[in-house]
Design a protein around this nucleic acid. Structure first.
Lengths: 146, 146
DNA sequence: CGCTTATTTTGAATGAGTCAAGATAAGAAA
DNA sequence: TTTCTTATCTTGACTCATTCAAAATAAGCG
């Protein structure tokens, strides 16, 4: 359903519908995010530079923010780590993060399709998303601790 | 049960048991965190300065990190916001954050005492905590949008 | 094809947080 | 109590992901 958003034709459509111009930096950034799940900004910049050496870091930052606002990609930023991005979006999945090495993996929601969206006391907030981060130790770091 | 940790005698005990010295900056920082739930570092520094004008920002940063590691306080850092601290700890509660103004409130767990600790696929991680952040709009910002 | 202006480039700036060296004070021992 | 050791604090410089701003460029409408 949603993968079309990250196909070449799909992204053009998404951008045009939002009255945004379809530029080379933007297309390259989205391709890089799709090809590098959970990559940080520096990794995205490097990936973009492989095909487009002259794209500035600012253009990458701008594009990442734009796509995040449009809901085409998602930003993840666990405590004490820099921002990462993923193009898997709209399926309400979560993440496990290793306390030691920062390694990050996807986790499907354990409670169902739209989990935990009901807080016990929402203080009058209109809640639209429940973000869940599982903290622990990845297999590699568990092995090192022995 | 756990409040004793933040009483004067309690914190001395906690620090001594961890072979840490009981210093004026540390006691002042813990008092400030307890008195200002969800405060950021700058607020903590200001609060500490009211009683101890000469305590350095570095001592505050060090103390906050120490207490966080000891489990006496908890650090919260929603995306795009700076770190905040709270002394309510050990009861596995969560937070609602306003997308617009950053306002933050406590939320008791909706799933029970130890919620969501079972990820559907944990990728072999040894999970010890499920951090949940509910995103939405606080009552004030909802009103402004009308 | 040319024009308008959204995007990009370039380069400097921001700011929460960290590092490091010397000064201070907690608390063990005498 | 006084001395001594060293953990902790003060001071001030520094990091680095991210943002800001002005001038240059290019998307895409007419």
């Amino acid at each position: 359903m949603l993968e079309h958003m990250t196909s070449m034709a799909g992204i053009e459509q998404v951008l045009r519908e939002a009255s945004m111009r379809v530029t080379q930096p933007r297309v390259a950034v989205l391709a890089a995010v799709t090809a590098n799940p959970h990559a940080d900004t520096e990794t995205i910049i490097s990936a973009v530079h492989e095909g487009h050496p002259n794209v500035s870091h600012q253009a990458v930052y701008d594009s990442l923010k734009l796509f995040t606002n449009l809901g085409v990609i998602r930003q993840i930023q666990p405590q004490g780590h820099i921002a990462r991005y993923e193009s898997r979006v709209g399926d309400n999945h979560h993440h496990v993060v290793c306390r030691q090495c920062g390694n990050l993996e996807d986790v499907d929601c354990s409670v169902g399709a739209s989990p935990c969206l009901h807080a016990s006391n929402d203080h009058g907030f209109k809640i639209d998303e429940a973000e869940v981060i599982y903290w622990g130790l990845c297999p590699e770091c568990q092995a090192l601790d022995n």
